[in-house]
Design a protein around this nucleic acid. Structure first.
Lengths: 217, 217
DNA sequence: CCAAACATACCGACCGGTCGGTATGCGTCA
DNA sequence: TGACGCATACCGACCGGTCGGTATGTTTGG
């Protein structure tokens, strides 16, 4: 890969402070068992810090959840922002390049490639507005990062339908869905199935962007 | 709608026994706040039964989760099995009819149209094999119910790619993803966004099944 | 020397689960 | 017919343990 990162979780800094260690632990545990099933004690154990350190850095478990979503959003956002597909001249190629990169990042068991924001969103959207908003911002940022390229690609084909914002959201929807249904399969089948769904998404985008303008009318 | 059912949650029987009341309460609460964030006491309160009744019918909270997934799978399965789109002659129309029905069922806030199996799967796949398997069976049954129609529609167009099993799974993936990303939006925007993503799925299936055989080669 | 960065000990509320007991319905046999 | 025996359905107080959170040190870097 590029930038010397670890495929599934880019931009993984050596966690130095107790705060960083807790955020890293939160990413691992939330992916594996969700947020509410993860206790503060468990987070401290996984991070190798004590409870005092936890509540020194975070006023509550909920605030750690918010911070974890932001940490996740920032590190993944930086990773995708620095990906080489942005240098492609054709916006359609950039869009497909993003999807190909997402496919390439999927490997191993489900908990190693699933999305922290999506997982937390699902269980916290009704119980914690702060966590919901942080997760929504993370997924929304991913969609927005795609929107301009999609808009340019659609415009280049003379298409007014679908709207770029809608298609960008759809891309994130399929990615999130792939993470969910992957968890229904045995570990060794999870990644291939998720990649296959993203393959369908890729084909859809390809069909849209290779469509003859006459067919779109 | 058909059969005199309630749109979002078909085949809702008048819950008579404490067991049924608990399963109905589980559907509501799990949709809203997930499984592990829902306590046994809360389930009893919502169902209007006592804790004694709970553990009379279920040996553990985990087993209630399994039963809730099966209850969900059975009631939704019966609903989709009895839907009128099955009477269409063209298998492609049946497939699109299924997607259209799924779109029609999406309304109101996210917790009123989201999937119990998908929600529980996400948080329990690593902590409870029994719940994971029950949820996986529910989603798998939905995919399998589509597979024959998809296979027939693809065969009628002379397509060997994609495989029917893969496309059937993809349909479920997009549906699950739509439920997740809907939760990132304010309640009034959730349903329209979810419908829009299923609209993209519908367009993809349409593009596939209306594709000229020459293009597929 | 003092704040920031931790560690330790502890709290009350709530968790899933247990247990002794009651109400009710049904088959059975004198 | 009716009273007995027994299973099912349900009740609610209670248990040990874990939960998120707090109070109070102790260490450490500037």
């Amino acid at each position: 890969m590029f930038g010397g990162v670890i495929p599934n979780r880019p931009f993984r800094p050596q966690p130095a402070t107790a705060r960083d260690k807790l955020l890293e632990a939160a990413v691992r545990l939330v992916r594996a068992q969700g947020f509410s099933a993860t206790s503060v004690d468990q987070l401290c154990l996984e991070a190798g810090v004590t409870k005092g350190a936890f509540f020194h850095h975070f006023p509550s478990k909920e605030q750690l959840g918010v911070a974890a979503a932001q940490y996740w959003s920032r590190s993944t956002g930086e990773f995708f922002a620095s990906a080489p597909f942005h240098h492609e001249a054709d916006p359609a190629v950039r869009v497909l390049g993003y999807i190909d990169l997402r496919i390439a990042l999927i490997s191993g068991p489900a908990e190693s490639f699933s999305c922290v924001a999506g997982t937390m969103l699902q269980e916290s959207f009704a119980t914690s507005a702060a966590i919901r908003d942080a997760c929504a911002a993370s997924i929304g940022a991913n969609a927005r990062a795609l929107e301009d390229d999609i808009a340019a690609a659609l415009a280049a084909r003379g298409l007014v339908e679908p709207r770029a914002v809608s298609l960008a959201r759809h891309v994130q929807t399929v990615i999130q869905g792939a993470f969910v249904t992957a968890k229904a399969l045995p570990p060794e089948a999870a990644a291939p199935a998720a990649r296959e769904s993203l393959g369908h998404l890729r084909r859809y985008v390809e069909l849209l962007l290779s469509e003859e303008p006459s067919l779109a009318a």
